[in-house]
Amino acid sequence: MNSNVFEIKNLKKSYGKKTIIDIDHLAISRDGITCLMGRNGSGKTTLIRLLALVEQPDSGEILFNGEPLPKSERERLALRRKMGVIWQNPAMFNMTVYQNLILALRLRGIDKKTIEQKAEEISERLSLYSLWNKFPSQLSGGESQKVSIARTLIYSPEIIFVDEPNTYLDEDNQRITEEIVMNYVQEEKKTAIIVTHSSDQAQRLAKNIVRLVNGKVAPGSPE
């Protein structure tokens, strides 16, 4: 299998007249964690949205496991279901934590027994039982982030994207989030791409670090 999970060629994305992403070439390794670094507005989150198939690029090519990303919505959906994104702002739907937790499984039409089993497994692992009947408005920032991570990991995505995990968390919760992501990547041999501002965090976690400056890959990043 290709050693790069993603390969990007001449990728461009603009919003209005502003070019957000303009990458000639970038390869992202399958192994372990890759950190995306850069200042605000450097295009980190946009790049995640493009790689996770949430948005379409204006031009250029993204190869996933050596194959171009599909064009048809049906194939894109199938591929998207192998990926998971933990967003910077953990948006929760207006339903109980339990229902948020199993949402991705229900969307995939998984049977009820498996859903219950997986919900119990992830809740055991991340100590979520006490939150099951709460609504999003009753959760703290750390609890929301934990549920947001759990509802992504529950379907065991091959690749997880984590968008600035530290933004709304205190130090304890930052450490917990890091541990969860690290354990998932190491134990299940998965790939993670993490957006972070923190050089310390990047040095601590990442096998590869990609720096973005004004939507371009800065010299010294893996190309």
Partner: peptide, 12 residues
């Protein structure tokens, strides 16, 4: 973000 969350969780 809510739309992005739904899509990234695997919604059509």
């Amino acid at each position: 973000v809510l739309w992005n969350t739904a899509v990234s969780l695997g919604s059509s």
